[in-house]
Design a protein around this nucleic acid. Sequence first.
DNA 1: CCAATAGTTCGGCTATGGTCGAAGTATGAA
DNA 2: TTCATACTTCGACCATAGCCGAACTATTGG
Lengths: 227, 227
Amino acid sequence: MKEGPVIASVAALLGDPARANILTALMDGRALTVSELAEAAGVTLQTASGHLSKLEAANLLTAEKQGRHRYYRLSGPDVAEVLEALMGLAQRTGATRVRTGPKDAALRSARTCYDHLAGERGVALLRGAQRQGLIEDGQDLALTDKGRAFFAAFGIDLAALEKGRRPVCRACLDWSERRSHLGGALGAAVLSRMIERQWVRRESGRVLTFTREGADGFDAAFGPAAR
Amino acid sequence: MKEGPVIASVAALLGDPARANILTALMDGRALTVSELAEAAGVTLQTASGHLSKLEAANLLTAEKQGRHRYYRLSGPDVAEVLEALMGLAQRTGATRVRTGPKDAALRSARTCYDHLAGERGVALLRGAQRQGLIEDGQDLALTDKGRAFFAAFGIDLAALEKGRRPVCRACLDWSERRSHLGGALGAAVLSRMIERQWVRRESGRVLTFTREGADGFDAAFGPAAR
DNA sequence: CCAATAGTTCGGCTATGGTCGAAGTATGAA
DNA sequence: TTCATACTTCGACCATAGCCGAACTATTGG
């Protein structure tokens, strides 16, 4: 019966508006300074500093010092995944605000989920990869030989990915689409390769915008995003 | 920037110890009365009543009245899944208590996750089903023809399951094993069939105990639980 | 009808914890 | 060395919300 409180302590951490803002600001996987996070959360520097210490103590964030700045980032993709899952619950739960601005549409179309691609494009990527037999849908997703060849041609060093401890393929539940998109080391590599190739640009926040060539290239490779 | 607060409100709901206890008490998918939940949470009836109204208002719980009792249950499997995910985070986060009692071992071996089988046995079930080609691992798991025949022979009415709105197969992340087990309508059906067949018995809380014949039958069908 | 059980509502107490001002530390720049 | 920036720590304030006692409603059983 001592099980409830263990979830309570971490949930309480996520339950404060200021901290929730900090965490969602970090959802794009970048590291931000204390002042930047304070502004994102709408609190003063001191307050943010206090929150950040708590989040770091709970291992939700990691910090690194660089000069007189202190950079905080999410401590791992799993934290981002839980946050996405919570957003899904919050939405289904009716807590969804009516405020559906234009930025919202952009977010639903394509955004970063920690370090990989999410939103309509994200689920289209995974769906396309599966349909073409590049990735096999198992309990844990797995690359096929065909997929191996494909992503190598795409410019990704699979050997390097497989050396790391992070799973190469990972299904990550998308809060806006309510389907999975591709996370894991491969998901991260695909996104950064797309940015390198200038298929896609990071906007403010977590929004991603596809260039003209990027959209065409994406559709050719994985099929159109529209369902 | 109004995105943080939406996760904050639901997380705050999960962040109170009393409510967290209530929710974990309901993780086995059964419906419990207000008084039972009050006891599980360690608060008085009035306090529990207040918490339950909030959880119901947020659509995390649904209630139904029966005589002078009011039965509360989780409003869906997705709620249970988020709770399991949070437990995983809490554990990785170091919030794990050192208190690893005997009940803990039983929980890790086999337990209910909402209405399906979780723990070592749960992941063994899914792994075995995949290895035998009963279930194909896609972004969303899918039954093969072979699997269809197998589960029909197991005594499950697949046509009925497929009529419902709930997905038949669903991968659900197991907090103790850190791998997926089988959720969805099929996961629920398999567990209730196992109980019918007296392969397994519900103990107090979410613990499940396999009978001698149950363990043998399970191993024969899906392979041993030990990794 | 009355008594008992189950649950809700109300009101007031209290504590936890978020907030910021002010003062303190560390790093870099002039 | 001196000043400025980035951040942390301390202390005090204050609001939120959890909690329970008491009174109220509803259902059942005698």
